[in-house]
């Protein structure tokens, strides 16, 4: 049986890199006595795969990991069981049993499903962007001007070369305020029934673990994510800074992932990964 877990990663755990998070979960499942499925051979390991690795220093409300189980209790019981063994900074908020693929279908990995992600990028306290835009009104105005351009080109560097890329099409939403962001997001989402808990899945409505800063300068954005097109929020901020003669300081910004989405074949509407059970 395949199960998709949703979890939050926050606080000091943002300093734990992706591979260590993988090891952490393997050990946590063993502590919790979860009946994990193992590969065979001399070095058996748990069947486990993450949807979209989170970079060092980032926090998240919606990380997804697919695991293989031999047996399971009810989703609610399983969530509680796992959370009992989580360290501060990891909190499991969803447990969803996935549909077995039909005979003619291939197994889809969580990673291949992801098409976009929502981020909240906040300016950390103690960093100055320049005297003239260090208040919210001014910042929002300057950022809007940047985003309203028809093309935003950046110099994307690869190992061998660099090329100019227009990232504007990969930015699907920008907002500076939570309720405005939620309204805009509604337009983009596929209409789904509100009650998401049933026999095969259980979700906890957990408070967002995004860090809050006094300066209140922040941007909500939805960016293309995944194998087809991928844009990191840091690149958007860097482009914005370059565009406004602000020195880009990667340590000045806290990036927090809010949600990961997929979309059904031809439809343009998004589905949060937690509502897609394949």
């Amino acid at each position: 049986m395949r199960v998709r877990l949703k979890f939050q990663k926050y606080g000091p755990m943002k300093f734990i890199g992706h591979l260590d998070v993988l090891r952490y979960f393997q050990k946590a499942f063993r502590r919790a006595g979860i009946d994990s499925e193992y590969t065979t051979g001399f070095n058996p390991h748990q069947i486990i795969s993450f949807a979209a690795p989170l970079g060092l220093g980032l926090t998240s409300d919606s990380e997804y990991v697919d695991i293989g189980l031999n047996s399971s209790e009810a989703p609610e019981i399983m969530i509680n069981k796992i959370n009992e063994f989580m360290s501060e900074g990891f909190y499991v908020t969803g447990f969803q049993m996935l549909e077995e693929p039909a005979d003619n279908e291939k197994k889809v990995s969580a990673m291949s499903l992801v098409s976009s992600a929502d981020y909240l990028v906040s300016l950390k306290d103690g960093y100055c962007l320049g005297l003239d835009i260090n208040n919210i009104e001014k910042f929002n105005e300057v950022f809007s001007r940047f985003y309203d351009r028809t093309e935003i080109t950046i110099n994307k560097k690869t190992k061998k070369s660099s090329m100019l890329v227009n990232i504007k099409p990969m930015i699907r939403l920008v907002s500076f305020d939570e309720s405005d962001y939620k309204n805009k997001l509604k337009e983009l989402l596929l209409d789904l029934p509100t009650d998401k808990n049933n026999q095969s899945s259980y979700f906890i409505d957990a408070e967002s673990k995004a860090e809050i800063y006094d300066n209140n300068i922040k941007i909500y954005m939805q960016l293309a994510t995944g194998s087809v097109a991928n844009l990191k929020p840091e690149l958007v901020i860097e482009a914005f800074c370059n565009d406004n003669n602000i020195e880009y300081n990667p340590y000045a910004w806290q990036v927090h992932r809010l949600e990961l989405y997929t979309h059904k074949d031809s439809m343009d509407k998004l589905i949060p990964l937690s509502r897609f059970n394949k």
């Binding site: 000091p12 734990i16 890199g17 060092l56 220093g57 950390k124 990667p250 340590y251």
Partner: peptide, 22 residues
């Protein structure tokens, strides 16, 4: 944490210094 985000993100393996282990 004793160290700022900026320090922890600019050094190798910040997990060496944050404690909080199982």
């Amino acid at each position: 944490l004793a160290l700022s985000d900026e320090i922890l993100l600019s050094i190798e393996k910040p997990a060496r210094y944050i404690g909080g282990e199982v």
